[in-house]
Design a protein around this nucleic acid. Structure first.
Ligand code: ZN
Length: 272
DNA sequence: ACCGTGGCCTGGACGC
DNA sequence: TGCGTCCAGGCCACGG
């Protein structure tokens, strides 16, 4: 899906477009995208969007006292705001209309995403959120903290980075990119990294994720932000989707392998 | 507890 | 034109 940088971009976009707006009507065109779609529609009617936050790759919108709408975008989920009337196609699954005008749509070609309303609990009590590890962009995410997390896992470092219970927000694009920037092979065991490698890894996480946010995320086929615009970080990808191309640093051909059934890209020369 | 795998979906690219 | 195969930003339920 949209990973941390894309979700962060969407969250900022939502704050600009829908914060303070009141939901006049919710139309659920594909009920299986929404958990309990009938109460979902009724309970969101006439509620204001009070806050918009990111937790890992999930979007949390506060719609009342202890009422939170969580959106998981899956692989191809989009939230797009239209100031007037939103266009609807066969992948438009939910439509929010606002009293002040404008519509927000949830669009998802592959339908791996989910929308769910939680009531009577704070966001930290949502089961999905409770299962998330620390956010790599938090000030408290020091290399010592990372070292401690790494020490508890013998898995390949690439798998470790994808595990949302250990660290929240990194997905398949940025796992490969981060490891390239850190100069670490994806198959290395998490608990066998040396201190300098751990420090480089943390630097690479923050550097890559922050740069990707600056460029509004990565679009290669489906991802669009709240205004329907692509992210530009694809121009800065060093290894992801670049199998067979020359490494920008050493000209060795980029290799693709499978880890946990997901493509993993790396430079066999630059990454040790 | 840990790990890996397969399933959920649609559609674009490519080879025959 | 049409197949079959592989590929694609995620997550969860299963097994061993
Ligand atoms: Zn290289």
């Amino acid at each position: 899906m949209p990973e941390l940088p894309e979700v962060e971009t969407i969250v900022k976009g939502l704050r600009g477009k829908v914060l303070g707006r009141i939901i006049k009507e919710v139309q659920v065109l594909e009920p299986k995208m929404v958990i309990n779609s009938d109460p979902f529609r009724n309970k969101l009617k006439d509620r204001a969007i009070r806050r918009v936050e990111r937790q890992g790759k999930a979007i949390i919108m506060q719609t009342g006292q202890k009422a939170y709408l969580m959106v998981n975008l899956g692989m191809t989920g989009r939230l797009i705001f239209y100031p007037d009337t939103a266009p609807v196609d066969k992948h438009t699954h939910v439509l929010f209309s606002f009293s002040q005008g404008g519509q927000l749509i949830y669009h998802d070609q592959r339908q791996f995403g989910r929308l769910q309303l939680y009531e009577g609990i704070e966001p930290e009590q949502i089961p999905f959120v409770m299962g998330l590890g620390p956010d790599p962009l938090d000030a408290g995410f020091t290399w010592q903290r990372l070292a401690h997390l790494l020490s508890k896992s013998r898995r390949a470092i690439k798998d470790f980075l994808l595990d949302q219970k250990r660290i929240a927000g990194i997905g398949n694009i940025y796992a490969s990119e981060i490891l390239f920037h850190a100069g670490i092979k994806p198959l290395r065991s998490a608990n066998q990294l040396r201190m300098e490698e751990i420090k480089r890894l943390r630097q690479a996480m923050q550097g890559v994720l922050r740069a990707a946010i600056e460029h509004r995320g990565t679009s290669f086929s489906d991802y669009l932000d709240v205004e329907g615009k692509e992210g530009n970080y694809k121009h800065f990808l060093k290894v992801y989707l670049r199998e067979g191309e020359a490494c920008s640093h050493c000209t060795t051909r980029i290799v693709r392998t499978k880890l946990a059934n997901r493509s993993t890209y790396y430079c066999p020369t630059c990454q040790k």
